[in-house]
Design a protein around this nucleic acid. Sequence first.
DNA 1: TCCCAGGATTCAT
DNA 2: ATGAATCATGGG
Length: 275
Amino acid sequence: MIKKEIPNFSIKQISESGQCFRQNPAGENRYSVIACGRYVEIEQKGKETFFSCTEEEYEEFWHTYFDLGRDYGIYMVLAEGEDDYLSRAARFGSGIRILNQDLWEMIISFIISQQNNIKRIKRNIEELCRLFGEKKCSREGIWYDTFPDVHALAKVSEEELRGCNLGYRSRYIYETARFVERGEVDLEAVKGMEYAEAKKELLKLCGVGEKVADCICLFALHHLDAFPVDTHIRQVMDNYYPKGFPVKKYAGYAGIVQQYIFYYDLKGTERPSIS
DNA sequence: TCCCAGGATTCAT
DNA sequence: ATGAATCATGGG
């Protein structure tokens, strides 16, 4: 267990922001997170953040995973700007981070996300992990399942995938797993590409369109110029930006702006709550 | 019963 | 090149 003081970091907001599906509340102000074969629990009290890992594992993995080397305070100027809606969104989501998640996991997760709701997306992913991932035991004695790698998913039949209630996305996952296993898209190479090139490669995958490719670019490859337009963003644009949203104005961090808006629309406004 | 959920593919012009 | 129909599943 280690203690940190990290400004503009809220594990609750990150958890609720829907970019990472493998996290869950684990107590008061406490969340568990599974990523890249690892498990950690995070608790926040006042200005203090506690990580249930060693200093070494924090430095070597979680620091990067949660993008803790970046100063998100500089994006809080958005909260003072003349764009009223964006100001409120930035204030509301001031603890959000753009994570550095696993590329393969994001590809499959966001293929599943299409025309789907967050609750069911999480269920689908957990089922995939339970059936085809690896069982591990955390330091605190919690059993969890890792996300199945390319090789593991490439061995799964389309019928087995349908058994996970993935619906029509079963075929997309089936095709994509085999496509990548065959080496028709080189994920390691994609990691070294610029945004435009990486997106173009990802669009070759079955079940990956504009929006999903942008989510993968943003949440796995950390291309902050990616600005995924989904139903929420579309609705906000229709309601508050009838002349179009000025994405270019936020060159270099449009993806962060997108997350503030997405989260504000999802959790900030009173509306028939689902959760 | 219909509508929606972090859309993409397929098929029609 | 653009637009509608279709694609499963679960919750409201």
